[in-house]
Amino acid sequence: MNTVLKILSEIRPEFDFSTSEDFIADGMLDSLDVVTLVSAIDKHYRISIAGTEIVPENFSSTAMIAALIHRNGGRL
């Protein structure tokens, strides 16, 4: 989970992701941030998140992102 938070803070260093319950609703990630995040996750965990799973709700919290990584074969 700390790794996910670290990746998020590299993409949007101006936000504290540990205080938000919904990154999308709180305006902390836009669609191109999500693209950058997926690329970083793919590279770090050596996976390829399925394109059909790249939808806003899967990036709303660290728990949702962690579940996404797990579903796509990544080990947290």
């Binding site: 836009d30 669609s31 399925a50 059909t52 790249i54 939808v55 806003p56």
Partner: peptide, 24 residues
């Protein structure tokens, strides 16, 4: 609203909708 500018005369793309369409 997302940091980008455009007018009604210019090309608009709903990026997430198009991405989802293509991947699905």
């Amino acid at each position: 609203g997302d940091g980008n500018y455009r007018s009604k005369d210019q090309f608009y793309m709903d990026g997430p909708a198009v991405f989802s369409f293509v991947q699905t």
